[in-house]
Design a binder for these strands. Structure first.
Lengths: 89, 89, 89, 89
DNA sequence: AACGTTGAAATAGTTC
DNA sequence: GAACTATTTCAACGTT
């Protein structure tokens, strides 16, 4: 009789706990990242530069999907604009 | 071939240069701040204490602003109430 | 000419790749979360409410952690007091 | 008599107010920046990409001073490492 | 699907 | 040069 009330509760709890499980794993991974950066820093590497490299490589990756990034388009556009300005000067 | 040639480079460049202009002014102002602190330090004042004073005065100001926004909320609430009453009448 | 050739590229690359590996796992987990929410939604549950529950449980957990750290502080304080007493004796 | 007490107070206040004046100008400039980004966004430009361009141009500027950035050095190092790995494969 | 809002991550600046 | 603070940036979320 009361199944229609009870069961959803366990179902909800199941979703909640699955999410919480994932959140814990996310947290652990993020701490792992921190540790790696700390380790690199401890060996004298510049963490900010490492982050920059990661960003660049990620961009390259994204571009392979989209053929051409917005950044490229914008850069080419202002390149053209600057050239025009230079000639006019 | 592509639409990308349509991107108005001069417009982008204009935004970029306006921001860079502001950034330079920000930089100049921040150097001005440093100079003032140096000057104060040179006259024997404790820079850390000066910063604390600034922080406190800023807090006071923020609280005053906060109060005002609360006031706004109340005033608006009254305004709404009056409008409702007017319609009901 | 420059010292730059000395930079251990393989070491840098190792750090970079370890981070990228973690980033991929993070991405996968986040997609997993989305899937779970979608699944819940598909069964008629209100995702917004689920998020709220997660938020509340996280708050409770944080408060419990907070309490524990307070406990740590007290315990350490007692520890210190005992050490001082021991030396005085 | 009390000059040695009084005068520093006005002197301190002078420093405080000069700083606060600058802080206001900083705030105004920062709001100006926000407005420009909003304006650009309103015209359909991607603010994040604009930020990226600003970052790149700033980097270029910095590099002109330092001849070669750490980023370049690291990139060359991992380039070498990757080449070695590729050959070994 | 654009918008502002929020909360977390990163950066810069300051202090010790 | 390491930790802490404050500001800035970024991504996710809900809203319209």
């Amino acid at each position: 009789m009361t199944d229609t009330v009870e069961i959803p509760g366990t179902r909800i709890l199941s979703f909640i706990e699955r999410i919480e499980q994932i959140d814990e794993e996310l947290k652990a991974l993020n701490e792992g990242k921190k540790d790696i950066f700390s380790e690199a820093k401890g060996e004298g590497f510049d963490v900010k530069v490492l982050r920059e490299i990661l960003r660049l490589r990620k961009q390259d990756q994204d571009e392979r999907d989209e053929q051409e990034s917005l950044l490229d388009i914008y850069l080419r556009a202002i390149q053209t604009a600057e050239t025009v300005q230079a000639k006019a000067a």
